[in-house]
Amino acid sequence: MLRIAIAAALLAATPALAQPGPPPGDQARLFLSPSGEPFRGQDGLADWFAGADADKNGALTLAEFRDDAMRFFKVLDADGDGQVDGPENSAYETKIAPEITRMDLGPGGPPGKRPLVRRTDKREPRVGAARFSLINEAQPVRGADADLNQRVSSEEWAKAARRRFEILDTDQDGKLTLDALRPRLAR
């Protein structure tokens, strides 16, 4: 009982973690684009795809995918200096997509109140942003920091967009379709 009280006190001391997440079942209403942009609604994947598909032909090319990523980079780069730094990343985690920092207690609530479930698959559990995205990447802004200097340059962001496109383009035909992406959310 003491351990639970200590854990509760620690969570309360961390504002981003202390905030309650959406009710069970509502988490599906959040979708994070491959760059981490949140879309909240009935079909966030379709909303993101429609906005990224600049020529409205039902397929995303690398150029469209990268352009969409760079558009969101400009949102993250609040001071316009060509880098997303620590304070801008903190704004992403606390204001733009705070759900990525919340603990996922799974179905049934906290430990002791939910049934034990044995994992039958060998895949890594999805944490952070990966719970709401097409790619298993816990924090998409930090994930783009290739040189690990705690800042993401526009060049690093563009390279991350290419890498993410290549991950999603499983048949390597140079395009992404909504129907091909949809099954990735079910993982």
Rank of each mutant, 00 (worst) to 15 (best):
M1T: 14
L2Y: 09
R3G: 08
I4P: 00
I4F: 08
A5P: 05
A7C: 07
A7T: 10
A8K: 11
A9S: 09
L11R: 15
A12L: 09
A12G: 07
A12E: 11
A13G: 15
A16I: 01
A18P: 12
Q19E: 14
P20W: 00
P22D: 13
P23V: 13
D26Q: 14
A28P: 12
R29C: 02
R29S: 15
L30P: 09
L30W: 13
S33D: 04
S33T: 08
S35I: 07
G36C: 09
G41I: 07
D47H: 05
A50D: 08
A50P: 00
A52C: 07
N57Q: 10
A59H: 14
T61G: 09
T61M: 09
E64N: 01
E64Q: 00
F65Y: 12
D67T: 14
D68Q: 10
A69R: 02
M70P: 02
R71C: 11
L76C: 13
D77A: 08
A78Q: 14
A78W: 02
Q83D: 06
V84A: 09
D85L: 02
G86R: 12
P87Q: 06
E88D: 04
E88F: 07
E88R: 00
Y92G: 07
T94C: 00
K95M: 03
I96M: 09
A97G: 03
P98C: 08
P98M: 11
E99A: 04
R102P: 14
L105C: 15
G108A: 12
G108Q: 13
G109A: 07
P110L: 13
K113Y: 12
R114A: 14
L116S: 03
V117H: 10
R119N: 05
T120K: 04
T120C: 00
D121M: 10
E124V: 08
P125T: 13
V127G: 11
G128T: 15
G128D: 14
A130K: 11
A130C: 12
R131Q: 13
F132W: 10
F132M: 03
S133Y: 07
Q139A: 06
P140D: 05
V141D: 02
R142H: 06
R142E: 08
D145P: 15
A146Q: 11
Q150E: 15
R151V: 06
E155M: 10
E155G: 14
E156A: 07
W157A: 03
W157L: 01
K159C: 00
R162S: 11
R162V: 10
R162Y: 01
F165D: 00
I167Q: 07
L168E: 01
T170A: 08
T170R: 12
Q172N: 04
L176G: 07
T177S: 15
L178K: 09
D179Q: 15
L181I: 08
R182I: 15
P183V: 01
R184G: 01
R184P: 05
A186V: 12
R187P: 04
